[in-house]
Amino acid sequence: MSTLIFGIIASAAAVFSILFSAWQIRQLTRQTVITNGIAAASAIYNSVERLHNVGTLIFQHPQLNQYFFHGAAVPESGDEREQVLTLAHMFADALDYGLMIKSLAPGTSEYDCWDYYVAGMFATSPAIRQVVLDHPSWWPTLTPHLSEPPPPGTMPRV
C-alpha cells in the first residue's frame, strides 16, 4: 500500500514538475520576445541617430545639401571638397550601419525602408557613391547596394 501511495505522490510530483517547466518556458519565450523588441527598437534608434548627426552637419552648412540630395558633383578641389567627402564617409558609415543592423538584429528585417533610403541616397549623391566605390571593403553591407537600381519613388526627402 505504501508503495502505491509513494507512486501516486511521485507521479503527481512529476506531472507538477512538467507543468511548472512548461510555464517557465512560456514565460521565458515572452521575455525573449520583449527583449528582442527592445533590442530592435534600440538598434533602429541608433541607426536613425547616426543619420541625424550627419543631417545636423549638413543643416549647419546648407551649401553642402546639394551634394547629398540634389545630385551635385563633388567639387574638384578646396575646403568644400574635403567637407563633402568627409560627410560622405560619415553618411556611408551611417547607411552601412543601418543595413547591417537590419540584417542582424531580431525584429528589424522588415525595415525595408533602409534599402529604399540607401537606393535614394545613391541616386542623389555622387559623393556617397564615390567614397563607397573608392573603398568598397570599408562598407561591406552598403557596397552591394551600389549595383541595384533605385526602386520607383525612393528618392529621399529633403
Score class of each variant (00 low, 15 high):
residue 34 I to H: 10
residue 96 D to F: 01
residue 4 L to C: 05
residue 129 R to Y: 03
residue 151 P to M: 03
residue 84 V to C: 05
residue 100 M to K: 14
residue 151 P to H: 06
residue 67 Y to F: 13
residue 107 G to C: 02
residue 111 Y to F: 15
residue 33 V to S: 11
residue 67 Y to N: 08
residue 59 F to P: 06
residue 111 Y to R: 11
residue 144 P to N: 07
residue 50 R to P: 00
residue 109 S to Q: 13
residue 134 D to S: 09
residue 1 M to R: 08
residue 73 A to V: 04
residue 30 R to G: 09
residue 133 L to M: 09
residue 50 R to A: 14
residue 16 F to Q: 06
residue 65 N to M: 10
residue 101 I to T: 12
residue 63 Q to Y: 10
residue 82 E to L: 15
residue 66 Q to N: 05
residue 138 W to P: 01
residue 18 I to C: 07
residue 42 S to K: 15
residue 54 V to S: 07
residue 42 S to L: 13
residue 58 I to N: 02
residue 137 S to N: 15
residue 83 Q to D: 09
residue 109 S to D: 12
residue 17 S to Q: 07
residue 1 M to H: 11
residue 39 A to G: 02
residue 3 T to M: 10
residue 68 F to D: 04
residue 15 V to F: 14
residue 127 A to P: 03
residue 84 V to L: 03
residue 116 Y to P: 02
residue 61 H to Q: 10
residue 43 A to Y: 02
residue 18 I to H: 07
residue 123 A to T: 03
residue 110 E to F: 12
residue 34 I to F: 11
residue 74 V to M: 02
residue 53 N to G: 14
residue 130 Q to P: 04
residue 25 I to Q: 10
residue 19 L to R: 11
residue 113 C to H: 11
residue 87 L to V: 02
residue 132 V to S: 01
residue 150 P to N: 01
residue 49 E to Q: 14
residue 116 Y to T: 07
residue 6 F to M: 00
residue 87 L to F: 05
residue 138 W to C: 07
residue 31 Q to C: 00
residue 55 G to N: 10
residue 81 R to G: 03
residue 94 A to Y: 03
residue 128 I to N: 02
residue 10 A to G: 08
residue 94 A to M: 06
residue 51 L to A: 07
residue 71 G to T: 05
